[in-house]
Amino acid sequence: MAGTPELLRGTLDMMILTVLDRHGAEHGYGIMRHIRETSQGVLIVEEGSLYPALHRLEKRGCLSHEWRRSESNRRARYYSLTPKGRKRLREQVTDWNVVAEAVNHVLRPQPAPRPAT
């Protein structure tokens, strides 16, 4: 894959929910860093999209937040997954797997049809 593509549209929410499910409470910058490191620098979260997505997920009840001291002793807003967010993540992963499998079927080379005898 050439370059560092941005996250596919619609997958940012799934990435955020996955990071919080695996790593527990995290602030926005930490979420962005986890996505970049886990994808080995392939997936780059657009910072301008990250915070509206976090606030939107929180408004929908998928996330909650609390203010804590970060590693640098700076006050930071930490997000956590709610039961609703965990359920939403399961649904999104299922949908993603269905779509990915279908795309792979399309991309896979098809055997040539046998000539009629």
Partner: peptide, 25 residues
Amino acid sequence: EAPTPCDPSPEIDDEIAFHLEQRAG
């Protein structure tokens, strides 16, 4: 420490400021 819930802008400002500081770090 606890901004009023009716005005979200101080919390949002603080959150973005934290992000920029981390990135600069």
